[in-house]
Structure formats: C-alpha cells, structure tokens
Design a protein around this nucleic acid. Structure first.
Lengths: 192, 192
DNA sequence: CGAGTTTTTGAGCGCTCTCAATTAAAGTGG
DNA sequence: CCACTTTAATTGAGAGCGCTCAAAAACTCG
C-alpha cells in the first residue's frame, strides 16, 4: 500500500474479516472513488475486485507533495471523504436496525439511485437495475447470510415490489413502493 | 448548522432515527473530535449531548477561508476524517457480524482503549473504566435492545470477564480475556 | 450435454426481541 | 433524614426473525 488509487472502471469491495471467517463489507468502490490513505501506511481492510477493474495509481510521495502544493486537492479529497463518512453512517443504520427485508429493499434502491445519478437517462417504463454483486456479496454487504438474501428477494418478488429478469437484473415497477419497503424517509434522495 | 465545532469536554452522540423510532448511534463525539461539514450546509444526523458539553465554535465562512489559506489545516482535517472513517468501518463489522456478547465486550474494550490513550496513567491493579453511556445509549450504539445489553453485561459479570462497581463502573481483571470475548484479532491495538 | 458454480427452497433451531414485572438508584419535597 | 416519585437497570417468559444444515434447481461455460 505504497500508493494511492482512483477507480476508473469496474467495482471493488472493501471487506473486513474476523478470525473465524465472518466477513463484513465496509465499502463499495465505484468509478471515481478513491482508495488509500495519504499519511498512513497500513491498510486495515481487504480490497477485492468484484469485476474487472481499472485503477489510476499514484505513488504516495509525489501525491503527498502535490497535496501540500495545491490546497484545492486536499479540500476536494476532504469533501469526498466526508461523503464516504456520511454513506458509512447510513450504512450503520441499515446494519444495526433494519430488518432483512428492509436491508434488501435499501440495497436495491441504493444501487438504483447511483445508477440514475451516473446515467441520467430518461426512464421509459419501469426502472431497471443490474445488481453488480453475487448473493453472497450482497449478504456480506448487508450483514446477512446468502440464504436470507435469496429468501427476501423472492419475497419482494412475490409481493410485486420487484420483478426479476435472470438473477442479476431487477425491474422496479414502483420506486416509491420500494423506498417504503426500505424504511427510509419518504422520497429519500430525489431519485424520482 | 452554520458553524463548525470542536469538542473540548464532555460527550455527545451522533444518531440517526427512522420514522417509527428505531434509533442507531453513528458516532460518538469525544474531546478533540470535530463536528460539522466545511462545504455542506445540512446536517444529516442528530447531535445530542449525553453529558455536559463544552464546544469551541467557529463560524463557517471564516473557517473555510482559513482552510484555503493554510493547507496544513485541511490536511490535518482530512487525516482526522480518515480516522473517523476507519472507526466507522470497524463499527460496521461489529453491527453486521458480531453477537450480542461480542458487541458488549467490544464496547467495553473500545472505551478502555480510549481511556488509556487519553490518560496514559500507569495501571495499578485491574484496569477500571467508567461507562459514559446509559444502557439504552449502549443499545443504540450496538444495534441491540437495552434488555439484551443488560443481560449480556450480567453474563460477562457472571463469567468473571468483568466486575461491576455500581452501574457505570467496570473493572477488567484480564484485558486479554475481554479482547478474546470481543472477537477481535488478538492484542488488538496495543492496549497492553 | 455435463461439470461446476450460483441460487433457490425447505425444515428446525437459537439468539435476540417483545412484553411485563421487579429491583435498584437518583432526585424531590416535607 | 426519610417517604415518595421518577428514572434506570435487572430479570423472566414466550415468540419470531434470521441462521444453520441440507438438498434441489437454475444458471454458466467449456
């Protein structure tokens, strides 16, 4: 970890593992996200690519020098880190207090929101989302077992909240309904 | 939230609440901790003092100007925020994967560690720690109910992992035993 | 098509929650 | 200083959600 990186394309996950193998995902690295710590050397978490991944790497020393030279870089980095901290805190609410069904609904709506923010495409017909994670990865994300993930997805499908096309593609007929299931404040985050 | 603050003394908590009242603590503000977001206006979380509190407040505009002027401030702030992010991620592992007993043991050892780092006093006899939180606040911290918190504390007491003096004061005869119960990697964080 | 992986589904159990009552501690006012 | 109220903490009994273990089904890819 002698370098700092920036994700250009693909998805990686930050995970933490206990001695007996229990695993918790603690971050999801998407294009434009930043990895590494200017100022510290050791990485406390495992970084795993879940898809093909292209990153832009800087060596640490020159990067730190650049940070000292141009204050805007440090400021921008601070802003990004604060955003990550906010995201981590929402995630903590999910992990600590939400039911399995709410966790699944939250995950799908989070992915839908990010997708919408990224593509900005007009939605014709129902919103559709690709899940970039396996069931097991979703389980690690949500603090569940993969069986529970699968069961809750099936339940949401049975109740008409979502429709499945294959295993990885989800159709959302009514986004408000999904957000309601997620237990978030209504119209959470101007997705509509 | 038109200002930025620094905790001087006392303890405050950052909490997030769902519509139906479920509550999760997402941050614990201790002396030297920083509150507020240079760059953003709305606070997404509730800040509550859990003890008498003294904070040092800056108005936002001058503070941001100072940040632009002196790069070291922004850099230091970035470092602190990255530390908070690391803490949040450890917390996520706790919330998502640890058992109730492990959560309690983790909380006590976290408080013990912070206390040791703060006071740097020689420990004569068993390590002793004051819990700055009520059972309910501990429950909100750990994603449990207050009944479960109470039960697990009683269980740890019964098993000799800790001793209670009153409700808020804990004696730790064997810190390694406690860390083992917490499920953390052995000798986690040079507390010994 | 067949071997491997991923996902779904089932049955039963256990940990934590819920609801409720009791005990302990901390203020309050006479 | 001691009843009395209020708040905090403990403990009990029972139920439910999510986990564990196990097997079947669906998808992937050579």
């Amino acid at each position: 970890m002698s370098s700092v990186r920036n994700v250009l394309s693909g998805i990686a996950s930050l995970t933490q593992t206990m001695e007996d193998g229990r695993r918790q995902m603690v971050g999801l690295l998407l294009p434009s996200d930043f990895v590494g710590r200017p100022g510290r050397s050791a990485a406390a978490f495992d970084v795993t690519a879940t898809t093909d991944l292209v990153m832009c790497c800087f060596r640490k020393k020159p990067f730190e020098e650049m940070m000292s030279a141009t204050p805007h870089v440090a400021q921008r980095l601070l802003e990004m880190t604060l955003d990550e901290l906010d995201a981590a805190r929402e995630w903590m609410l999910l992990l600590g207090r939400k039911t399995a069904r709410e966790k699944i609904a939250s995950l799908i709506s989070i992915i839908a929101r990010r997708d919408a923010a990224l593509h900005l495409r007009k939605r014709t017909g129902p919103l559709s989302v690709d899940l970039p994670l396996t069931r097991e990865e979703m389980a690690d994300y949500l603090g569940l077992t993969l069986e529970t993930v699968s069961r809750q997805i099936s339940a949401l499908k049975k109740d008409g909240v979502i429709t499945l096309e294959g295993n990885r593609h989800v159709l959302i007929p009514d986004i408000d309904r999904l957000l309601e299931e997620a237990g978030d404040d209504s119209d959470g985050g101007m997705l509509v």
